[in-house]
Design a protein around this nucleic acid. Structure first.
Length: 439
RNA sequence: GGAGAGAUGGCCGAGCGGUUGAAGGCACCGGUCUUGAAAACCGGAACGGGUACGCCCGUCGCAGGUUCAAAUCCUGUUCUCUCCGCCA
């Protein structure tokens, strides 16, 4: 499936990237190498040269055609015989058509190549995978239990919060049902997050959960990661899919638009369920709610001018961390190494909550800067007050938060010997003042 | 689902085969005027690409077609609006 529509956006996005590669192929190679990508740019650079040669040829033919065409009405008026001109222009038209065909081929090859390249890591992002992630700070202490702590699956089942079996009956493995206090706790978490974001001046959005191919292209999921999503069919050929994250929709809000600089930074958040195939990614220690095909998440998003990106990433990371802190959960913040950042992102900070049964930390929020990567793909610009010209803006996103790993963290970290669970103070107002969930 | 109307620059809006890349207005930038600002007046300014930096090419939702020449004609397509039907 080709990226359809927005054809001039593609041209714009395409060229800027290409220009950088043309000018600094070694710098680009080095940056990609940090992500474990070994890319040979030679074929691309050859295409780039060929492309410019074809453009030169076809455009001088077009210039001639325009010139002669403009003179034809004048010649006609003067009573000249123009049949020779007409014949020649027919011929020129054929040549143009042929050259344009070749050009299209080269262009397609180049954009297919570029579409599949991940973002370049930021300068302060170290090479390598997970093992090179750096813990920035840790908050709180690992909980100590003077009894044998239970696994969250056992706790939430006993407390009748989550029904895994019937979830599987309804939809298959990887789906669960929130019930009773589980449903209420889930809703309390989301409400709490919403209130915090509103207090911080973020605008709330409720989005379509089924979106078009272009959204996936802009956010960077497509064309490389089409197998990670649920495609939906209405019998037509239109490619639509379920949101794997609200980011996918939020990144496309202003696609093909030019925002006034005064509107930036634009701070948004959205609640949506997230639907993911997670094909083959289950691990034995991820029993329960750690990884499912559907989970609830509130996503924060910012559109900023490039100079504001670092500040925005700090803000988003701190907001996500602060939510976990407010819940009283032990967590840490890590800066990801290049290979661990998702493809669209130049830099990512994870907020990871401690899950006692795993003896480790699990991501509840990923705060990332996409730099101009998504903006290029979606042709999202702002009018710079400095130059007066449209420039690509920067996009950032962070979960705030995904709940599916918070509930395990809450029930496990706050469990008592009798299997009851203490409700975090900040959530109690959302639960009618309730302090405990008891068997 | 049926019928109709529409889609033009940052925004609104004219144009319906040949100096129209596009009148006019708003917004924007520079200048004159002003103590300063506003108003008024004058001027500039679309986006993308190529470049021998003189210019040139492309772009009027999108994709094709007709033509020497398309915003303008033809076909397809997407989206928006109005009316009818259906429905949470």
């Amino acid at each position: 499936m080709r990226y359809t529509g927005c054809s001039n956006s593609r041209g714009g996005a395409f060229m800027l990237d290409a220009m950088y590669i043309r000018k600094q192929p070694e710098a680009v190679r080095e940056k990609l190498a940090r992500r474990g990508f070994d890319v040979d740019f030679q074929p691309f650079l050859n295409d780039d040269a060929e492309r410019r040669r074809l453009i030169g040829e076809t455009e001088s033919l077009k210039a001639e055609r325009n010139r002669v065409s403009a003179s034809i009405p004048l010649l006609k008026k003067a009573g000249n015989d123009i049949s020779a001109e007409l014949a020649r222009m027919r011929d020129v038209g054929d040549q143009i058509k042929e050259l344009d065909g070749e050009l299209l081929l080269v262009n397609t090859r180049m954009s297919d190549f570029l579409d599949r390249l991940p973002n370049l890591p930021a300068d302060d992002v170290v090479p390598g995978g997970k093992e090179n992630n750096e813990v920035i700070y840790t908050w709180g202490e690992k909980p100590e239990f003077d009894f044998e702590p239970k696994h969250h699956v056992e706790l939430v089942t006993q407390l009748r919060m989550i029904d895994y079996e019937r979830g599987a009956k309804l939809a298959g493995s990887g789906y669960w049902i929130y019930q009773g206090m589980g449903a209420r706790l889930e809703w309390a978490l989301l409400s709490f997050f919403i209130d915090r974001h509103l207090a911080d001046g973020y605008e709330m959005m409720l989005l379509p959960h089924i979106v078009s191919y272009e959204c996936g292209y802009t956010s960077g999921q497509f064309p490389k990661f089409e197998e990670d999503i649920f495609r939906v069919s209405d019998g037509s050929d239109t490619f639509r899919f379920l949101l794997p994250t609200a980011e996918t929709a939020l990144a496309s809000l202003y696609r093909d638009e030019i925002l006034p600089e005064a509107e930036l930074p634009k701070k948004l958040f959205a609640y949506t369920p997230c639907y993911r195939r997670e094909a083959g990614s289950y691990r034995a220690d991820e029993r329960g709610m750690i990884r499912g095909h559907q989970f609830n998440k509130i996503e924060m998003f910012q559109y900023v001018v490039p100079a504001d990106t670092d500040r925005a990433l700090d803000e988003l990371t701190e907001k996500a961390a602060d939510l976990v802190r407010s819940l009283g959960l032990h967590f840490r913040v890590s800066k990801l190494a290049a290979e661990d950042c998702s493809a669209s992102m130049e830099k990512t900070l994870d907020v990871e909550v401690y899950i006692p049964s795993m003896g480790g930390y699990k991501e509840v929020s990923s705060a990332s800067s996409a730099g101009a990567y998504q903006a290029r793909r979606g042709n999202i610009r702002y009018r710079s007050s400095e130059t007066g010209k449209p420039e690509f803006l920067h996009t950032l996103n962070a979960s705030g938060l995904a709940t599916s790993r918070l509930i395990p963290a809450i029930v496990e970290q706050f469990q008592e010997a009798d299997g009851s669970v203490r409700i975090p103070t900040v959530l109690q107002p959302y639960l009618g003042g309730l302090e405990w969930i008891r068997p």
